[in-house]
């Protein structure tokens, strides 16, 4: 199938190195300590953060740092066919783990010993790149909760179809069966904290695809920073500073 036509346009009209449109909103769940909605095109994810709070299960308590827990789920209405998604299946367990590890790597857990941070992410609408969207939403929610972090971790995916590296795959491109590289990135520290790919790719091509994904992460980081600044300004106004 032709995913990039000779004019250089993808199926949805983007060029190879263009991302989908973002939208983010902070503070969407008032009961949570921090929450955010993050959209990448038609992918829509909500994240809520609770904590740092007392460890519920004392046996899991760690004396010198905080426990980070993460739960990923997909709403039944998130895909077109409205199938009931069993909770705790392999895929969501894996993604939960991936998100937890990525977030744990940037939270300064040693500042909050004997406490627990819960991150809940739910996919409201799935259209490819849910993993990346979840990480971005979680970052925003953590920032909203005021949890100390090394840097804003952001994520983006890139793929390789029709001999072209494509940024930010949507569902159609994702299900084409080509390689899909998901990168988690700390933009200020210039460090990669997550790298996943489930296909084979020649080394030099892989390098290009990964660099493209990192560029995507930087773009997301800029956007997230703007959103946070805006949010902070609003809070400032409210306080009347």
């Amino acid at each position: 199938m032709e995913f990039v036509n000779p004019e250089g346009l993808r199926l949805d009209g983007r060029r190879a190195t263009e991302m989908r449109q973002f939208r983010a909103e902070i503070g969407v769940v008032s009961r949570a300590d921090g929450s955010a909605v993050f959209e990448m095109g038609n992918t829509k994810v909500i994240a809520a953060v609770y904590g740092p709070r007392e460890v519920q299960n004392k046996s899991q308590q760690i004396n010198d740092k905080a426990v980070v827990r993460c739960e990923y789920s997909m709403a039944n209405f998130s895909t077109g066919d409205r199938m009931r998604k069993p909770k705790g299946d392999r895929r969501s367990t894996e993604i939960s783990l991936v998100i937890r590890q990525t977030m744990e790597a940037c939270i300064l857990t040693n500042l909050m010993p004997r406490s627990q941070i819960d991150i809940f992410v739910q996919v409201l609408q799935a259209d490819g790149g849910t993993r990346s969207a979840c990480i971005n939403a979680a970052t925003l929610a953590l920032a909203d909760a005021g949890i100390p972090m090394r840097d804003l971790v952001t994520s983006c995916s890139a793929g390789y179809l029709n001999s072209t590296a494509l940024l930010d795959l949507n569902y159609v491109e994702d299900s084409a069966g080509g390689p899909d590289v998901t990168v988690g990135f700390l933009p200020k520290l210039d460090k990669v904290t997550l790298l996943q790919m489930d296909a084979k790719l020649p080394q030099d091509t892989f390098k290009n695809v990964m660099e493209l994904a990192i560029e995507g992460c930087k773009a997301v980081a800029n956007y997230i920073r703007d959103i946070l600044m805006e949010n902070t300004k609003r809070l400032e106004c409210r306080r009347g500073v």
């Binding site: 199926l11 949805d12 009209g13 983007r14 989908r20 449109q21 095109g41 077109g80 066919d81």
Partner: peptide
């Protein structure tokens, strides 16, 4: 500019499904 394009499609199993895709307009 963003437009969303939606259409109804019959799947192989015979179910009817609504598909929504993004459609970017360019300058």
């Amino acid at each position: 500019m963003l437009q969303s394009r939606s259409f109804v499609k019959k799947t192989k199993q015979g179910g009817v499904r609504k598909i929504v895709r993004e459609h970017y307009l360019r300058d």
